[in-house]
Amino acid sequence: MNELLLETRALRKRFGGLVATDSVSLAVRRGECHALIGPNGAGKTTLIAQLAGSLAPDAGSIIFAGEDVTALPAHRRAALGLARSFQITSILPSFSVLENLALAVQAVSGSSFRFWQAVKDETALFDRAREILHSVGLAEIAERQAGSLAHGEHRQLELALALATRPQLMLLDEPMAGMGPEESEQMVALIAGLKGRYTLLLVEHDMDAVFRLADRVSVLVDGRVIATGTAREIRANAEVRIAYLGAEEVA
């Protein structure tokens, strides 16, 4: 089971003089939880944005499920099964939690160019939406307006939206950002439950979480991948320790 699901080849992106992505070649195997770590400003979110299709790379290519998706817009990639959960919460604030999910489910269940039949009669959409809410622990607040949720609940909803699109691969951009220890713990458990069922590309600052969850880790520094390996290998890698963990820890 070493088939590659997502692969970038010599991906490159510059903003003016700053090279944000410097010939990144990354390989995510089907079924694994692959973590992407790196200090602030290493270019993690820029890379995710290029993978998701909201930012066009200057050079290089992105292969997803055997198809070159470099030129595809975000919505086409999403339809192919590349789901994104945003670092900064991005939900539909004026919809209820359940409606958020129903709209996400709708995206993968038939054409939405239907103008006459009322959505609320499509019980299948809402059943599936409830199921997902249940699995991420949001079932009890299904009727609440999404904009009024607490931060941790937003993050859970963010994850649920990505789940609802029946993804092959989920890009999780700092799912624990801004969470307290207790909420973080819940989120780690949630992601651990997704492992094996989905391929995950996880961007995270919380090293403890990363080493618990990830099968493999890639380290991004100044736009370049300096190492890829198992958690153990990465911890032992001298270059990573110097570049990322900080020289003082090595000393």
Partner: peptide, 22 residues
Amino acid sequence: ASRFGRVLAGIKDNEARMESLG
């Protein structure tokens, strides 16, 4: 109230999110 109408409402609320939902 249709599927199309809901999508339109979603776009009004958060277009980037709708795009990333596919």
